[in-house]
Amino acid sequence: MARKLDRVLIADNHEVLRAGMRSIIGSQASWHIVGEATSGQDAISVARDASPDITILDCFMPDINAIQLITHLRNEFPHMEMIIYTARKCDGIVADAYGLGVKGFVLKQDPALKLCEALNSVSLRRNYFSDQFAVDFIDRVVSGKHDSFGILSSRERQVVQLVSEGKINEQVAVCLNISKKTVETHRASAMRKLELKTTADLVRYAIRNSITVN
């Protein structure tokens, strides 16, 4: 018989929210919190040390975009389940996250019971969408809608996020450890694919599609 999935990692950069999750999860004898992380890189490091079965992730970590983090965790920990637990629906992220194998999607404003239900479902390797996520996801599938963010390469997505957060090309280059010229190339390519003309257009696009919280 397979071992029950009960080891949980919480990854959220807000202490008050982590405390709330600790309270919710700690009230259930079925789960054991094995680590907490305050950033994307921290989540990767803690996962290596703690070997969680399930990681609960906010969409908006301060140092790495959600899809990049999910991709890294999926590659390094292929058997670990993930739950997106966020204050905003992250419409531009949900389909990609689901495609990468994320099984749980819960809004922070949902009743605490929803997070417990999500943990129960993903521990059985089953999908879980809280009500609003379910409505939106089904609508997107039925209507055939696909977010245009999905046409960008991983590096283009990183550049778009960092630019939309107010970083200039030189700062983006430092963050990603690439040249300024490479940043300019990725930025131009992303704007061409998204049919955007100005940086202001790019910022509005990022906010509209929940790529940044600015």
Rank of each mutant, 00 (worst) to 15 (best):
I178M: 04
S153M: 10
A188I: 05
A118V: 01
V142K: 13
C116N: 10
E184D: 11
E156N: 08
S189Y: 05
S189L: 08
S154K: 15
L124G: 13
F133M: 07
A173N: 09
N120F: 07
S154C: 11
Q161G: 08
F149S: 07
L124D: 14
D136H: 14
V160E: 03
S148E: 14
F137M: 14
F149E: 01
V159M: 07
N127L: 09
C116S: 14
I151M: 10
R187L: 14
S121K: 09
F137W: 13
Y128L: 07
R187F: 09
S179Y: 03
D147R: 10
Q132H: 08
S121G: 02
R125C: 09
K145V: 03
E184T: 09
S179C: 03
E184W: 02
L162D: 00
L152C: 12
V183N: 00
L162A: 06
R157C: 05
L115P: 02
I151E: 09
V159A: 06
N127A: 13
T182V: 15
S179W: 07
V122E: 04
R155L: 14
V163C: 05
F149R: 12
V122L: 03
N127S: 15
F149T: 04
D131T: 11
L124Y: 14
Q161W: 01
K181A: 14
V159K: 08
L176E: 00
R140I: 04
S164V: 01
V141Y: 01
V122F: 02
V159W: 03
S153D: 11
L119K: 03
H186P: 02
S179N: 03
F129C: 12
Q158E: 15
F133Y: 12
L162N: 02
Q158W: 01
A118I: 02
D139V: 08
L176M: 06
I168M: 03
K167M: 04
E184C: 06
E156R: 04
S123I: 07
H146F: 10
Q132A: 12
Q161R: 06
G150Y: 03
C175E: 12
N169V: 03
I168F: 04
N177C: 13
D139P: 03
A173Q: 05
S143H: 07
K167N: 05
G166E: 10
V160A: 05
Y128N: 04
S164M: 10
K167H: 10
V174C: 01
A118F: 01
D131Q: 13
G150R: 10
L152I: 11
R140V: 05
E156K: 03
